[in-house]
Nucleic acid binder design. Structure first.
Length: 1122
RNA sequence: GGGCGCAUAGCUCAGUUGGUUAGAGCGCGUCGCUGAUAACGACGAGGUCCGAAGUUCGAAUCUUCGUGCGCCCA
């Protein structure tokens, strides 16, 4: 006997059982062990940061990350899954600061870097338990106990190794980075923090003269909203392609140069009257020199020249340069450039510097980190830059340089922790990786990656790579991988250190006692912290550049994106450990994260990998062919809350994952993710939608499953007793050896059909899953479950109900359904692993330990081509269409299915399937409750429509198409059809010519004429027509069917077991009704398990009054003891 | 401001290389079944395919512009 299951399953409870089973029997381990030595499918886990609660978005990633490895494992691959945790970075520091109630770097230093670092290390694991629980609960199989951790010493060693490699190859350099700087707090803010702080403010907007050196009485007209940056001016930028005009002031006669498109706007603002005296393109202005409004630097450097790469001489600064970013949206089209205080400006400086062989322009920055002018600009020395604005404007006006002044309202960022402090852009010394030198290689690598969706490759990601800038690697923070560069205190020369061990092996190492002391003071301190601040900062050694000097580490840590991007090798501690494992697990076959990782992990992986392993010449010993480090990347959409907005805790617009698991189960969530939209479209996370996705797949499948168990038990169908020896995975070959398992080709059409559908589905699911298209795969699975439930089981019910327990047909039905359910449980195993396991365990329970214990230890089903019958599939679809049309027609004619009809007629546009259909009359007759089905060539109730075959005729006819279409639709369809049949062509007159159309050139559809009880399906070309004539005989039969329904309803009300017999009395029926009952007495008794039908009330039985045949009768139903 | 993406039924979403009656599920309505039974099923009504222009014999699909939304970056 099979275990019985509830018709209304509690999936969450069943899932808990499955989890326990997996845990106790170590199923995941076993699934790996049985694939040892098999080809690998390599998966990389993008490490989450566990210092926040996991939310629904993480569920999606974790579900997708589980799906494909599970699938590939079943398909025969060896797929290790090593977890990982991202542990460094600002988010962790911020979390700790919150806890300590502090903000700035000074406050952290005052608190103590050592204690702060300890806090960070502990904070990382704050939500570890939650993450692990979620991971397990959603069924994400991954080795958590072997997770890589980015702060571990072995990981840091690996990262250092890679950085040393880059440093030694000259790819790591120091430069300036323009950051958003909080001067009062002395710290840079991350882009996320800056984004939070934008506010509308009014700033001074000034139009300033920059007099040209070589054109008397002529000035550039320059606009800026940050007057305080004017003393730091180095260039003026114009767009090379824009038109510029020279205007003459009607009153003063002075000349100004500005963009032609902006002349009128500025003229009106300044309330001047200007006459255009010259026009030119931006390129023609390039190279002209001007006097900046402030002399502090110009007076000393104004005449300096350098040598360009081509050998010619060029003034270093204060000249016009070309730049594409100049627009005419605002300002004057001539843009003031202060490279120290604008990222774009700084890039321009870099580009200028690159043109010089010697004597290149240097960055001018007369502002100290506290935001106050230095002694380089004596006039404003000690003044906070924003406070200097007013005085600068006044000075400009007094010196006659100000053309116009106004207030300008715009969005400007403020510090999110000190709302009154505006941020400024400010240059900081920073370390860069020269990624730009690898742009082409990165693009080449990118081209070979399988992106899903594809547009990421050339779109978002490709564009990003095209406009690549060097990676600003260093961070002036505390909790991160320390930058492994030591500087000689006397010569300033530097070297990179490739591991902690390498550091300790340096000559005359000092400072390690700081760490030793910490270990004594805090015995619980993890060994890994020895490579972190502040301990690592204390370690110095004798300089190889100057024996009297010490080597001291630079204070920075690195961008934590570098950590995660280094995981392909760092997760193994490569190259100091596990060299073999790295080789086996590089590159990844599959990774998946949400789209916000494009510039995050997707980039850091690709960049690091390309720089280290993609440089055939620079690092030949590490070279590996592209693509790497990942071959396929499924880019997931963003997850939105119930209201379609971004999910946010404060808005409470989403349910906690735990709640979903407890109510509907992990499978419900997984299936919702996989089956409802392509994974890269953004997903609305709605509880309602998750609940609704249950019945259409899982519940429907469950019903079939439960149906099978009920009847198999009832009929004593026991596959285990019919099969000797080990049953393994109960594959088709194993089942074929069972007693009573007839070869499929010997079975009935319905059985052959559903098995054909099963193999077709298997074939398609494999095809889609190999292409990482889980969404389409799910659609095929849905389609199959629908076919199984709504046609196979529905049409097979009489076989399951038949009294002859051992009839061949019945046994066939059991084997067929059993095989379908077993196979489906394997097919859905990667998608809904819990339901699959429950089904498998239940269906195979009768075999005891002769069968594989878990569905996840099975091979994925293999489709058999010889089991797929395309023609049968097509025909069955047609038959289903006919049934649907028949019901449709009954509906139209208001003739309920319980009322038998004498006949339906079917007209097929294409008669090639007619013979087959005729052989299945019984099925259709039963489905439609009619006595006879006739196939006709023609009927008065139908009409034909002949349309051009557009696809075929389009290229041939072109513009004549509408005329042909018009002629065909207005002609008599039936005549055209017969003409086509007799002569093989139709001649269509178009203008002066005649166009001859063959059978291939037109599409003939048949349709029901309006007003008939008929329904058509033009797509398949069939019409079903009802004979609505009712004879007395038919009506009487309808009465009995009604009666049967009422009696069975009564049985149910009385809670009769469905195999219990009854005695029945019908009181008050008319002779007409009795005639009907007598005529169909056997049918009635059989359908209601009725022994006797009485005409007098039964004693001790409560009657029920029912209405049948327009009369009221009393029913007495008495259950007989079993 | 730039890049990328999205916009189709009341809701959530499909829609293959352009082919002439635009699909599914849910919801809604009508009904059926009553031996899967607190299940199951059928049928139906719902659409200016965001707007405009263009290419084409033919556009939800291709092009351009615009509108709205999202993401990433300024």
């Amino acid at each position: 006997m099979f275990p019985t299951v509830s018709a209304t399953p509690e999936f969450p409870r069943l899932e808990e059982e499955v989890l326990r089973f997996w845990r106790e029997r170590r199923i995941y381990d076993k699934s790996l062990r049985r694939r040892e030595g098999a080809p690998r499918f390599v998966f990389y886990e993008g490490p989450p940061t566990a210092n926040g609660m996991p939310h629904p978005g993480h569920c999606l990633t974790r579900a997708v990350k589980d799906l494909f490895p599970r699938y590939r494992t079943m398909r025969g691959y060896y797929c290790e899954r090593k977890a990982g945790w991202d542990t460094h970075g600002l988010p962790v520091e911020v979390e700790v600061c919150k806890e300590l109630g502090i903000h700035s770097k000074e406050e952290i230093e005052a608190y103590g870097v050592e204690r702060f670092i300890h806090k960070c290390q502990q904070s990382v694991w704050r939500y570890m338990k939650e993450w692990e629980r979620l991971t397990e609960r959603i069924g994400f199989w991954i080795r958590l106990d072997e997770a890589y951790v980015t702060y571990h010493k072995s990981y840091v060693d690996s990262v250092w190794w890679s950085l040393k490699n880059l440093f030694d190859r000259g790819l790591l350099y120091q430069g300036y980075k323009i950051v958003w700087w909080w001067a009062q707090g002395g710290t840079a803010l991350s882009s996320g923090e800056v984004g939070q702080g934008y506010r509308q403010v009014a700033d001074p907007s000034v139009y300033v003269r920059f007099p040209l050196v070589d054109r008397p009485n002529t000035s550039l007209l320059v606009w800026t909203t940050t007057p305080w940056t004017l003393p730091s001016n180095q260039f003026a930028a114009v767009h090379p392609e824009l038109e510029y005009v020279t205007v003459e002031d009607e009153e003063t006669g002075e000349r100004l140069i500005l963009a032609g498109a902006l002349k009128e706007t500025v003229e009106q603002k300044a309330k001047r009257s200007w006459r255009v005296v010259g026009r030119c393109r931006g390129t023609e202005l390039v190279g002209l020199r001007y006097r900046p409004p402030f002399d502090d630097f110009y007076s000393r450097q104004g005449q300096q020249q350098g040598t360009l790469v081509d050998g010619s001489r060029q003034y270093t600064a204060w000249r016009i340069v070309a730049a594409d970013f100049v627009t005419t949206d605002s300002g004057t089209g001539v843009v003031h450039q202060a490279p120290a205080f604008g990222e774009v400006d700084y890039e321009l400086l870099l580009a200028e510097q690159a043109r010089f062989a010697s004597g290149a322009p240097q960055l001018i920055c007369p502002v100290a980190p506290d935001g106050k002018f230095t002694s380089e600009v004596p006039a404003y020395q000690g003044l906070w830059v924003k406070d200097a604005d007013g005085r600068i404007v006044r000075d400009l006006r007094e010196r006659g340089l100000l053309v116009h002044y106004e207030q300008y309202v715009h969005e400007y960022p403020f510090c999110w922790r000190a709302e009154e402090d505006p941020l400024i852009q400010y240059p900081r010394r920073s370390w860069f990786i020269r990624t730009t030198a690898f742009r082409d290689l990165m693009l080449e690598n990118n081209r070979l990656i399988g992106w899903l969706p594809e547009h990421i490759r050339d779109g978002r990601f490709g564009n990003f790579l095209e406009t690549n800038v060097d990676w600003a690697l260093s961070r002036e923070r505390f909790w991160g991988t320390p930058l492994p560069i030591w500087v000689c205190q006397s010569t300033g020369k530097m070297e990179a250190v490739g591991s902690y061990a390498e550091l300790l092996a340096k000559p005359d190492v000092q400072g390690t006692e700081v760490w030793q002391e910490a270990r004594r003071q805090y015995p619980d301190l993890p060994e890994d912290l020895c490579v972190h601040k502040p301990y690592i900062d204390a370690v110095t050694y004798r300089s190889p550049f100057d024996p009297s000097a010490r080597m001291v580490r630079v204070p920075d840590v690195i961008d934590c994106w570098y950590d995660s991007g280094a995981m392909p090798f760092a997760q193994w501690g490569y190259p100091y450990q596990n060299r073999q494992r790295f080789e086996e697990q590089f590159p990844a076959d599959f990774i998946s994260e949400a789209i916000d990782q494009t510039r995050g992990w997707f980039y850091s992986l690709l960049a690091i990998s390309t720089l280290l392993f993609g440089d055939r010449h620079g690092a030949p010993e590490l070279y590996r062919p592209f693509p790497h480090p990942y071959r396929n990347c499924v880019v997931l959409g963003l997850m939105l809350g119930e209201d379609g907005n971004k999910m946010s805790k404060s808005r409470r617009n989403y349910r906690e994952p735990e709640e979903i698991f407890d109510r509907y189960g992990a499978d419900a969530l997984r299936w919702y993710f996989f089956a409802n939209q392509a994974p890269w479209t953004s997903i609305r996370y709605k509880e309602q939608a998750i609940r609704d996705s249950l019945p259409e797949f899982q519940l429907r499948l469950w019903n079939v499953f439960s149906f099978f168990l009920i009847y198999a038990n009832l009929d004593g169908f026991d596959p285990a007793s019919r099969l000797a020896g080990p049953a393994g995975e109960l594959s088709g070959e194993v089942l074929a050896a069972a007693a009573g398992y007839r070869p499929v080709q010997d079975r009935g059409e319905l059985d052959r059909w559903i098995l054909s559908e099963l193999h077709r589905t298997t074939e398609r699911v494999i095809q889609e899953m190999d292409a990482y298209d889980s969404f389409t795969a799910c659609r095929y699975l849905l389609e199959f479950v629908d076919a199984l439930s709504n046609w196979y089981v529905r049409r097979s019910r009489p076989r399951f109900w038949s009294d002859d327990k051992q009839s061949v047909e019945k046994i066939d039905a059991y084997w067929t359904l059993y095989e379908c359910l077993l196979t489906v449980s394997k097919l859905i195993a990667p998608f809904t692993p819990f339901l699959a396991e429950t089904m498998w365990r239940t269906l195979t329970s009768v075999f005891g330990d002769r069968v594989v214990e878990s569905v996840h230890l099975c091979d994925y089903p293999q489709p058999r081509n010889d089991a797929i019958d395309q023609l049968l599939s097509e025909r069955m679809r047609l038959l289903r269409t006919l049934a649907s049309l028949g019901r449709n027609a009954r509906m139209e004619a208001k003739l309920k299915v319980r009322q038998p009809l004498s006949r339906v007629e079917v007209v097929l546009a294409d008669s090639s399937h007619q013979e087959w259909l005729e052989a299945h009359d019984d099925l259709l007759k039963d489905e439609l409750n009619v006595k006879q089905i006739r196939y006709l060539e023609h009927s008065d109730s139908i009409e034909y429509r002949v349309q051009p075959n557009f696809k075929r005729l389009g290229p041939r006819l072109g513009p004549k198409m509408p005329a042909v279409k018009q002629w065909l639709t207005s002609a008599d369809g039936a005549k055209l059809r017969s003409a086509l049949a007799e002569r093989g062509r139709i001649d269509v007159p178009v203008g002066d010519e005649t166009i001859s159309l063959g059978p291939e050139d037109v599409v003939v559809t048949v349709r029901a004429r309006p007003g008939w009880a008929a329904a058509d399906d033009p797509a398949s070309g069939c019409v079903v027509i009802l004979n609505t004539e009712l004879t007395e005989e038919l009506i009487r039969e309808g009465y009995v069917r009604d009666l049967v329904r009422l009696i069975n309803e009564r049985r149910k009300e009385l809670s009769c077991p469905y195999n219990a017999k009854i005695d029945l009395a019908i009181v008050g029926a008319s002779p007409k009704l009795w005639q009907a009952i007598d005529e169909h007495r056997d049918y009635l008794q059989h359908e209601t398990l009725c022994r006797m039908i009485h005409r007098a009330p039964l004693e001790k039985v409560e009657p029920a009054t029912v209405e049948v045949a327009d009369e009221k009768v009393e029913l007495y139903v008495k259950q007989l003891t079993l």
